[in-house]
Simulated assay, not measured.
Amino acid sequence: MRQHAFGRMPFTVSDIGFGAWQIGGAWGDVSEADGRAALHAALDAGMTFIDTADVYGDGRSEKIIADVLKERGGARPMVATKAGRRLAPHVADGYTKANLEAFIDRSLKNLAVDSLDLVQLHCPPTEVLYRQEVFAGLDELQKAGKIKGYGVSVEKAEEALKAIEFPGVVSIQIIYNIFRQRPADLFFKEAKRKNVAVIARVPLASGLLSGKISRDTAFASDDHRNFNRNGEAFDVGETFAGVPFEVGLQAVEEVRALVPAGTGMAAFALKWILTNEAVTVVIPGARNAEQAKANAAASDLAPISADVMAAAKDIYARLIAPHVHHRW
């Protein structure tokens, strides 16, 4: 698996990382045993970047990561977590240094470390990105040694562009996949110019781009693909990348025709993301060891041809862009 620098930070990371939302919760029943097996398989395959959050299973994801890394010993991967979504209500005024420090202290305990490799503001209200004092507080927490660096996880490309105006922001996490192509219009160019690391999340559009979901697929009551179809719990763009379900299924069938023989559709979708050199790491989730291994294998796929890339862009423009491009 290819390894490279993580922006301006002194970390080397794999181009495919491990997204740890699924082993925390909100994806139906994923047992702790399966979660541990998935993470072990990812690390065995060479992944050196893990992304989690304090709200994934109310700390369950962070604690599983801590236990697995302690069990394995040796060189540690880079572990990024997030803070802010524990606020109730989740409003801009809650993003104080005191609140963020409390969240960070909790994550330090959950992850069993003295300093977090990377903490990301977890899709904060847009107003937060206009408050210098929030980032000044993060600078102070970094100087105190509680965090090695900080970034922002965002919903919109405009938010990403605003966030990287702050010099201390070393990374941006944003949704980017075949069904969400807008970040490549302008944001990626600016991120590359400023050497800001880009973490691409929701790479498979909540499983749509795995090609394994159909109209008859049933999702558990505690799976966000059931309870957040219309944004009832959080931004609708996090579920199926904001694409209406039936439209997504139609587009998937057109994408399927582009996948080379012998290649899985999920692996193809991950490789498509990595074709853009502005992407530092893509973070698919995994429910079990088999999925983690399959995700890792995408790193070594042959490059996607220009013709196929153009065809994927055409599918996006015709079917998907009218629903998502103006929103995120």
Score class of each variant (00 low, 15 high):
residue 4 H to V: 04
residue 14 S to R: 08
residue 14 S to C: 11
residue 18 F to P: 00
residue 20 A to D: 09
residue 21 W to C: 00
residue 21 W to P: 00
residue 25 G to C: 10
residue 28 G to S: 07
residue 28 G to P: 02
residue 33 A to H: 10
residue 34 D to W: 09
residue 35 G to H: 05
residue 35 G to R: 00
residue 37 A to R: 02
residue 45 A to T: 15
residue 46 G to V: 04
residue 53 A to P: 07
residue 54 D to A: 05
residue 54 D to S: 09
residue 57 G to R: 00
residue 58 D to C: 07
residue 60 R to K: 15
residue 64 I to T: 06
residue 72 R to W: 10
residue 73 G to F: 02
residue 74 G to K: 06
residue 75 A to D: 14
residue 75 A to N: 12
residue 76 R to W: 10
residue 83 A to T: 08
residue 86 R to A: 12
residue 90 H to Y: 05
residue 91 V to G: 00
residue 91 V to E: 09
residue 91 V to D: 06
residue 97 K to G: 13
residue 97 K to P: 02
residue 98 A to G: 05
residue 101 E to Q: 12
residue 104 I to A: 11
residue 104 I to Y: 07
residue 105 D to M: 12
residue 111 L to P: 01
residue 116 L to C: 07
residue 118 L to A: 14
residue 119 V to M: 10
residue 122 H to Q: 08
residue 124 P to I: 01
residue 124 P to N: 02
residue 129 L to Q: 14
residue 135 F to S: 05
residue 140 E to H: 15
residue 141 L to W: 08
residue 141 L to V: 12
residue 142 Q to M: 15
residue 144 A to I: 13
residue 156 K to C: 06
residue 157 A to P: 04
residue 163 A to K: 12
residue 169 V to E: 13
residue 171 S to F: 11
residue 172 I to Q: 05
residue 172 I to K: 08
residue 179 F to Y: 09
residue 188 F to S: 08
residue 205 A to P: 02
residue 207 G to H: 03
residue 210 S to C: 03
residue 211 G to V: 01
residue 212 K to V: 03
residue 219 F to E: 03
residue 224 H to R: 13
residue 239 T to W: 04
residue 244 P to N: 06
residue 260 P to D: 03
residue 263 T to R: 11
residue 264 G to R: 03
residue 266 A to Y: 01
residue 268 F to Q: 10
residue 272 W to P: 10
residue 272 W to F: 13
residue 273 I to V: 14
residue 276 N to C: 05
residue 279 V to K: 12
residue 279 V to I: 11
residue 279 V to W: 07
residue 291 Q to C: 07
residue 295 N to Q: 07
residue 306 A to P: 01
residue 307 D to A: 15
residue 307 D to Q: 15
residue 309 M to D: 04
residue 313 K to H: 13
residue 323 H to T: 11
